[in-house]
Design a protein around this nucleic acid. Structure first.
Lengths: 230, 230
DNA sequence: TAGTGGTCTAGACCACTCA
DNA sequence: GAGTGGTCTAGACCACTAT
């Protein structure tokens, strides 16, 4: 294959943008022109430019042409891993322990997030995740049993609720919120931290085809950092 | 255009995966077969499958075929916005104030992150971002003057360092770390919070073509939440 | 070595939107 | 109305890798 591929073109145009060949908001040459310039088919240019557009570096409009983005949106992508993998990535041994497993009527906030009717029960699951025997993260979870009734019988000694759900209900979607909170008495004791310690929290709700499956708060031990590249 | 587009096909195949038509790790039909099934060109199928692969839902290998991902990686994407836009998104009025602007030799940690030689000076900039006059975020920044010497004369009364850099050195890359910390005396006073309060921190280092431009810690006011979709 | 995905091309038509 | 990007097609060749 020649060295003129959509990837090399994409890289080349990226560098031209970074070098300032076109100012912010300025029109860059059309696909036809670039195709001629790079000596390739318009399709190939199109693919390169669509890649850059999906990253937010350029803005494309029919008839309006392609412009360098005026407000390049910086996007960070995070892999949201399974806690066990995080622990093992630290080179530590993973273990988890279910602290509470109860079927009961959830508080209003949880009920809303799971889309449950008033009085409906859900499964409450509190888990502590351990790295080399020391607390790594505390998980407070509610599961919608109307969607995954099998969860009642999941072997939670062998596999964490997190992983069981990933395997049983894969490819669900959802949202995530990151926050910092002061450790409550309950969280502090689970994490063996002082009450009031600054704790990094991931608050996550998962849904499958419009049904809310589970909502969870994950409280990490003090000093935990979540890393990503722009 | 017919209703058979790469997008509709992608959605269709996504639904088939979610419905469990193929088990985790199972081989799905080849491009040629799917093209026949959907009555379109192989190119179109290819585009749809590449989209799903880029999201980590399927894994593709030449000769090996396409398989449903065994460990679907959940990725969260965040827009990392400019603080002013965050404040204005809350419907509040934005204002900022430079608390410190000094050219001096940075501590070792900062020096390393900016790739500076021993004894080299950098620009230290502390800024408080205000929403309706109340502290929203405290920014502690160091700028590599070897890369952006113009920063010395930037009109920081009119435009925040953040925005000035985005406009002057757009399209840079970098990394981000999210953490929770207890407010130090300095941070607490800047944010008008209690010492020891749980503060959400974004720690960010930016580079351009291998040169480190700036490193910054952004301490958000108590209760701040960063939201994203999976 | 054979089969699968990765990519390019050339041409075509369509959809949007600016003037 | 005209110019730009969005997409599809049909065919071709290549690159990787499982067998």
């Amino acid at each position: 294959m020649s060295s003129v591929t959509h990837q090399t073109i994409r890289q080349s145009i990226l560098e031209r943008i970074q070098k300032g060949e076109w100012a912010l908001g300025e029109l860059i040459p059309g696909e036809a022109v670039l195709a001629d310039e790079y000596g390739c088919a318009r399709t190939t240019i199109n693919r390169a430019l669509q890649g850059l557009a999906s990253e937010g570096l350029i803005v494309r409009k029919r008839k309006g042409g392609t412009r360098v983005s005026e407000m390049p949106v910086r996007q960070a992508k995070f892999d949201i891993p399974i806690v066990r993998e995080q622990v093992e990535a630290f080179g530590a041994q993973y273990r988890h322990q279910v602290l509470r497993k109860a079927e009961k009527v959830p508080p209003l906030g949880i009920r809303t997030r799971l889309g449950l009717e008033k009085g409906a029960k859900a499964l409450q699951l509190d888990t502590i995740h351990l790295a080399d025997g020391r607390p790594f993260a505390f998980e407070a979870r509610w599961v919608n049993l109307q969607v995954v009734p099998e969860m009642r019988n999941a072997p939670l000694d062998e596999i964490s609720a997190n992983e069981w759900l990933v395997q049983t209900v894969p490819f669900s979607s959802g949202d995530v919120v990151f926050t910092a909170v002061s450790a409550s008495k309950e969280v502090a004791s689970a994490l063996e931290a002082k009450e009031g310690a600054a704790i990094f929290v991931i608050d996550r709700t998962t849904s499958l085809a419009g049904d809310f499956v589970t909502t969870m708060k994950l409280f990490y031990r003090e000093g935990y950092q979540l890393y990503s590249q722009l």
